[in-house]
Simulated assay, not measured.
Amino acid sequence: MPIELYNQKGHLCLMFTDLCEEGGEAVQSNQFLIVDGDTGAIIDPGGNLAYGELYLAMTRFFSPQQLSAIVASHADPDIIASLDRWLTTTSSAKVYISRIWERFVPHFCKAGKTTGRIVGIPDAGARIPIGRSELIALPAHFLHSEGNFQFYDPVSKILFSGDLGASLIGGEAAKKPVTSLAGHVPRMEGFHRRYMVSNKVLRLWAQMVRKLPIDMIVPQHGAPMQGAAVQEFIAWAESLPCGVDLMSERDYAVPA
């Protein structure tokens, strides 16, 4: 069952945390459905494991032909491997992804399926119209992908943060928002030290998002963060050494 993150005046944000079977081989991942009036968007639709239930949930609010956008933070399989099926069942929805990846994502689809359907987001970001509102694609390059975006919903004030903010927990635990970061850090730290490229990029990200009113940060893995945890996470990320900061010659040695 989806978790309702926001529901006011015809604008609805739903999160799905358990469409990939918990305890199975696949990493836990979240998928998101944004509804605005009689249309909407899918954020990071995931792979084939997630497709069926996410599709059925969408049809409870509007027909497949009314889907406005499929938006992808980057091009990993857990983000967009189900693209071929989405493009088959929706005839007009555009796929928004970094222009770095727009010629790579057709590899997920049958020949010709993506023709005229992919919109490459420029490095500086973009505003994506969704019904009466929009999603703002925020630059999040190298967090963790070379071409990477987060999506800010100005109506709900939710930042859909992709892999940044991810925690390594199961789908059931991911349904409960975190309101204080202290006890949550052990579920996040190892992932962020390995998957985020450098502290320099995290500092630039923190500087950018502090300009936005954010009520909730919702990553693509694990639990959302709200209340005090939002600013606590931004401060924690801003000071975290990670990625190339931690590399040395011992990490680039010929194996014995």
Rank of each mutant, 00 (worst) to 15 (best):
E4I: 14
V230F: 00
A111H: 05
G147K: 02
N7C: 12
W205V: 07
A50I: 03
P241H: 04
V27S: 07
E232K: 08
L49V: 03
G162N: 13
T17P: 12
H184D: 12
G116T: 13
G165E: 06
S167N: 14
M247N: 00
L168D: 08
F151C: 06
P241N: 11
H11G: 07
P177A: 13
L67H: 06
A182K: 14
K175H: 03
L56E: 15
V119H: 04
L246K: 06
A237G: 14
A41K: 07
A69R: 09
I121C: 11
L240C: 13
V201I: 14
H74L: 00
G52H: 15
V185T: 06
G243T: 00
Q31Y: 00
G24E: 09
G125Q: 11
F62Y: 15
P122I: 02
V35T: 02
D215Q: 10
L135W: 13
A173V: 15
G125Y: 13
R187Q: 14
T17F: 02
P106V: 00
Q28N: 13
L54S: 07
A206C: 14
E4C: 15
R132I: 09
L56F: 06
R194Q: 08
L14T: 10
P45F: 02
E102H: 09
D153Q: 02
Q8V: 15
G125L: 08
Q66V: 00
H184W: 08
S82C: 08
F191I: 05
E232V: 10
A206M: 08
E4N: 11
S82P: 03
A166V: 01
S248L: 01
H192A: 15
F151H: 04
G243N: 01
I100R: 12
P219Y: 01
T88M: 00
A206Q: 10
G190D: 13
F104S: 04
I100W: 10
F233W: 13
A229S: 11
I217Q: 07
T17Y: 04
A41Q: 04
S180I: 09
Y51H: 05
V71D: 05
